[in-house]
């Protein structure tokens, strides 16, 4: 801060408080809606203050779900989302760190070609090539399976670049010293490179966990068996049912449960996450 300006300082506080309120407003309404009985939504206005049916609504959604409306219990969907997010996050980190290791620490023919193949994936988001990718997954019999939910999304140019960047800043002397001490490439990788990139792995894990948890289009296409629905994609099917019967209390309870894990990860690991986000995008 350069000088004291009480008025400007007060205005800044006001802006921030308004910002925090606007940002929290939709989520507040969702939490409130999830604590009311169904009758609260049949007439008039949505409630803005919490009601008394929180326990009933959440236990109903986790227990039997909206079976009469074609939506399975949330417990299974939350589990599927967790599996998907964890496999995608760990998988992306694992295959990217080994790729970066190969590209930085080895000289071999077609090294640049391999690098460019990975680079190109940045330019091919799922949304753009859904139909042929879906066909490939169907031909490989990956529909309605955890493999189908995760493997097609597991390649990561961003993570590979991040690790490449990290490895390039590690002094050459470390590798020479390791070699003099008789360490082979894999020994050097597991004993030196992985420990040195620990903080980057943690930051990347937060970002990729959120990425995996929040996937929407791909799980929607690849799953038709409700045993494999993920919660974010499953909510759409639930909201469609709501158009007929207003069970907003249940839908909003599901939305709150779907938001909770990734939001908790961001808040608990805020420092790592913020640092990681800004470094990954550089």
């Amino acid at each position: 801060m350069v000088e004291r300006r009480p008025l400007l300082q007060a205005a800044a506080h006001l802006v921030l408080i308004l910002g925090v309120l606007i940002v929290a407003f939709p989520v507040w309404l969702a939490i409130v809606a999830s604590t009311h009985p169904q009758e609260a939504f049949q007439t008039g206005l949505i409630p803005v203050w919490p009601g008394s049916h929180a326990v009933e609504n959440y236990s109903a959604m986790l227990g039997q779900g909206l079976s009469n409306l074609g939506a399975p219990p949330l417990g299974g969907m939350l589990w599927n989302s967790l599996v998907m997010a964890l496999v995608i996050a760990c998988g992306k980190i694992a295959i990217s760190i080994t790729s970066a290791f190969a590209i930085v620490y080895f000289r071999f023919r077609f090294r640049m070609l391999a690098f460019w193949c990975i680079f190109i994936t940045l330019m091919l988001p799922v949304e753009v090539r859904i139909l042929p990718t879906f066909k490939v997954a169907a031909d490989l019999r990956m529909l309605n399976s955890y493999a189908g939910l995760t493997i097609p999304l597991i390649a990561s140019a961003t993570a590979t670049f991040l690790f490449r960047q990290v490895f390039l800043t590690i002094p050459d002397e470390l590798m020479e010293a390791a070699r003099i001490d008789g360490a082979g490439p894999m020994r050097f990788f597991t004993d030196i490179l992985i420990p040195l990139s620990r903080t980057n792995i943690a930051a990347l894990f937060v970002i990729l966990f959120i990425y995996g948890w929040n996937q929407y289009l791909w799980p929607l296409l690849i799953t038709t068996d409700e045993g494999y629905y993920t919660i974010v994609a499953g909510i759409k099917r639930m909201a469609e049912a709501v158009d007929a019967i207003p069970v907003w209390n249940y839908v909003m309870a599901a939305a709150v449960l779907a938001m909770l894990p990734p939001v908790a990860v961001v808040i608990l690991m805020q420092r790592v996450f913020v640092k990681g986000l800004i470094e990954t995008e550089k």
Binding site: I95, C117, I151
Partner: peptide
């Protein structure tokens, strides 16, 4: 300083390249 192995880098790259080829480049 680099390692001289010829096969190892391809083994390390294989998973990433396989997914990239099957689910990105081919589609």
């Amino acid at each position: 300083a680099v390692f001289r192995n010829r096969l190892l880098p391809w083994v390390l790259l294989a998973p990433q390249l396989a997914v990239t080829f099957v689910f990105f480049l081919w589609p």
